[in-house]
Design a protein around this nucleic acid. Structure first.
Ligand code: FES
Ligand code: FES
Lengths: 144, 144
DNA sequence: CACAAATAGGATAAAATTATCCGAAATAAA
DNA sequence: TTTATTTCGGATAATTTTATCCTATTTGTG
């Protein structure tokens, strides 16, 4: 469904959010340990998220990655997915036709678009805050 | 969502179904032309579908690929997807945890499983016959 | 039987994704 | 200002997916 890069990006963002609530910046090393991902690869993805203005980075001693506290609740899953995987999850034809077009539909278009729309809806209506809170309260997990 | 191989496999199966209704066998060359896919790669996928008993192949002169007419309506999309991409569409955790487990859920588990279940349901309740009929009546298309 | 027409299957190649490594640049503290 | 720490960014490598090519095998027909 999502690329590995996107999976790592989502999990990293959640972990950063949790720590930002406590005013703590985190490093790629901590993050990759906590979400069980390759460190250098994760660092690349973090750079990408910084460029897309989803997280902040602070260089130098006592630096690390963080998210503005008041931005956590308004950051949608869709923004992260879009930053890393682009818009293909939303727009790509299920059978790979060049464009998903209502006037030139592939055989699964009608059935597929419903599911794709629900996925889109889900991603656009899920924010980092709720995901972070569930982790904090031990309801959900970031690894294994 | 699906791999290229799976997309090709689905489109090829539909095209084979259409022709099987007319008692015509088709070659990888015809198929790849009709679904706009690389010929040799498509041939590999066809072999895979044969091994999974989804289509039949007949070697030698006047040979080609076909599907038993009375099997078309009972062949589900899920069988094709399962043959080529395996069961990951149904079982894989949205964030890549080793197993999708109700007792050890990832942050998006609850929201994700609903969508995944609908996808599964869609694939299990869509058969080759309906897809082939829509193509025949010009309602849907296999390429561009 | 010999030949032509097809699929089967192994060996490679190309491209995309995932992953690693290392030096440069920035920054805070001593 | 020097040093330690940390992100940034380019180069490279490994793996997986996608794609091609060539030969073997099967099978119907003359
Ligand atoms: S045309 Fe294929 S999903 Fe819309
Ligand atoms: S645990 Fe991630 S989707 Fe179920």
């Amino acid at each position: 469904m999502f690329s590995k890069a996107c999976e790592y990006g989502i999990k990293a963002s959640i972990f950063i959010a949790i720590n930002s609530y406590e005013g703590r910046r985190v490093s790629p090393k901590e993050i990759s340990k906590e979400i069980d991902s390759p460190q250098a690869f994760t660092a690349k993805i973090l750079q990408d998220l910084v460029r897309h203005n989803i997280i902040n980075s602070v260089k130098g001693a006592y630096g690390g990655f963080e998210i503005d506290k008041d931005k956590i609740a308004s950051t949608k899953l869709s923004q992260i997915v879009n930053a890393i995987d682009g818009d293909k999850v939303y727009n790509h034809c299920g059978l790979g036709l060049h464009t998903c077009d209502e006037n030139h539909p592939c055989p699964v278009h009608d059935k597929f678009k419903t599911i794709r729309a629900e996925l889109k809806d889900m991603l656009e209506n899920t924010n980092l805050e709720e995901l972070a809170l569930d982790i904090k309260s031990g309801l959900t997990f970031l690894k294994i």
